[in-house]
Design a protein around this nucleic acid. Structure first.
Lengths: 329, 329
DNA sequence: GAACATAATGCTCAATTGGAGTATAATAAA
DNA sequence: TTTATTATACTCCAATTGAGCATTATGTTC
């Protein structure tokens, strides 16, 4: 019965065979943006994403996770979507498989009640090389690229060596290429393979991943348990891609906001600066916001108009969100 | 232990609690395009997608499914990606949950060995309203829209009624809107809610979905077991979206092909015609193909050059694929 | 062999979009 | 009053995109 070729003949019965039983858990990537900082909800002293076994009273995965997060954060999860299901992780012994179903949720940061040791933590502490708002982090040039180059050179097979070099060039946008914030997962996997990520050393005992030089945490970021950091990278990648074609940024904003606040939020997620005027043009011409009539003083200059998200557009159109006019400067 | 609020405190142990055990199975949406027809691999007399319990010898979900499909079709699965994990389905009694993890795979049609009763089947037989290559199918105007309108009118709550009307207008692109092929899942869900999909009647006994008028199969498409048709719609939606920004069409093509063949393939997937010259411009300026030097006679006119996909671009760039210059005519 | 049908392929053109910069307005702080 | 700072309104130009015309190379039909 373990030959995969009998998948087709296996009877599709509502009653699954009991011998084929596995364990599943849920993992949540809950994101908020506060003070220009994209944050993720963590537990266990920032070393883990909130998670738990799947044994819902609630009917669906989604409903269970939503209820839990809303209780944790005391705020509605405006948006939630499934990220990925992992099953090829370390097994649990005894022949049991573990399946992890991860979700991405968006909300606004709130005092966490503390009873579960949940902490909001800037996601750039896990990926220091990903914040390009003040230019490319020097850690890339200083530490990561040299180590990656060395790893590429260490390949004996010329083809493999060339392939590694190319991956480095593409993901980090060197040699004429340009930085692409959406490639965060590819960059993480590259660093992981190169043995620069502490988590790789842990798993490395089993796999073929080499152990690279030990760089300080300020270079390679804070580690997490198991593959949680990889899941976080998956969530960030999804979010960075999504803000370009769906109006999801608004789920991270308060009820009313200025256009600059909105811009700062988008920039925090993308890890890049956007062109202010073009950003506003985009938002307004798509009629994503409406004027509240009020203004926000104390902006340090001319008072800014307060806007509100026009939630109607979510149903009225099936359209694009903001294509983020990222400035190339 | 069933209160979802304890997800955070649940210990993240490598050994999952045995009491929390569920069943999982894999479901595959395997697509090929033959003779201008997008086809999906089905079993059980076209009523089901290939699936089977998850109890892999192989280390990962992906590896198991890939091996199985390759054995079935005798052809490599060029491309495979996870679609979605469903868990809120009908339970299996006895407190067991069933999780279904679905995958999308691309290949080329091949004689199936027949031993598993696998049949390639045009996906438009399941969604007759989705093929707009020869204009909007008349079944929309003739049968679907009237039934949907009636369903909308049947809502007593005015807000609900308005919402239904709006969803109909948006998903079917009426009232000034335009047809959007990516909304296939939304259209299916709308028809399902309106009770026009036979599957809804089966599940309707449990839920709140009304039983709509019984339309002939030529209007509402061929049914499938459980929620397989919904999963198929999910796969098609993913594919239709993906061909616009990733060069995945080539996974469905033979080694060498003419540009018109490539175009027909893309059109088959999108269910829409594209502008020939602009399509070629797009393909060539992105350097996705290279001339083989050979030509294909018997095209009915001037012989066409044969091209080959430049697989290098997959690693060389992390870029867009084909944005499909769909003709509005 | 001439006319015709059918595709392939090359090219033009206008409209739109997108990146970038300039100019002006309104406020607080010095 | 000057200066710093931000908001907001426009302008400009280049690149992209949608659409169509023109030409070329075949096979087919009178």
């Amino acid at each position: 019965m373990s030959d995969p070729s009998n998948i087709a003949t296996a009877e599709l019965d509502a009653k699954p065979a009991l011998q084929n039983s596995i364990a599943a858990d849920l993992i949540a990537v809950v994101v908020a943006v506060t003070a220009g900082d994209p944050r993720v909800l963590t537990i266990q002293d920032r070393s883990a994403l909130p998670s738990g076994p799947f044994e819902l009273k609630h009917r669906s995965l989604q409903a269970g996770l939503r209820a839990w997060v809303e209780r944790q954060t005391r705020l509605p999860l405006g948006y939630m979507e499934q990220l990925y299901t992992f099953a090829d992780r370390d097994r649990a012994g005894g022949g049991q498989h573990v399946i992890s179903i991860s979700y991405l949720g968006l909300t606004r940061e709130q005092e966490t009640s503390g009873e579960y040791e949940a902490i909001w933590c800037s996601w750039y502490s896990y990926f220091p090389w990903e914040d390009h708002r003040a230019g490319a982090p020097e850690v890339i040039e200083r530490a990561l690229l040299p180590s990656l180059q060395a790893w590429a050179e260490a390949a004996t097979n010329p083809g493999l060596r060339q392939g590694r070099k190319q991956r480095i060039a593409v993901t980090f946008g060197i040699e004429g290429g340009t930085w692409n914030e959406d490639l965060i997962l590819q960059r993480y996997e590259l660093l992981y393979e190169a043995g620069l990520i502490p988590e790789a050393a842990r798993a490395g005992a089993l796999g073929n991943t080499g152990r690279g030089p030990s760089l300080p945490q300020s270079c390679v970021g804070q580690p997490m348990i198991l593959d949680h950091r990889r899941i976080l990278a998956t969530g960030i990648a999804r979010l960075r891609a999504k803000i370009k074609y769906r109006p999801v940024v608004f789920e991270l904003m308060p009820e009313t906001f200025t256009l600059l606040q909105l811009q700062r939020c988008a920039e925090a997620l993308a890890g890049r600066l956007v062109h202010k005027q073009n950003f506003r043009r985009l938002i307004e011409q798509q009629e994503l916001v409406e004027d509240t009539g009020e203004t926000m003083p104390d902006t340090g200059g001319r008072p800014a108009k307060l806007f509100r998200f026009r939630r109607e557009v979510l149903t009225q159109r099936a359209v694009v969100g903001t294509k983020l006019p990222i400035s190339r400067a």
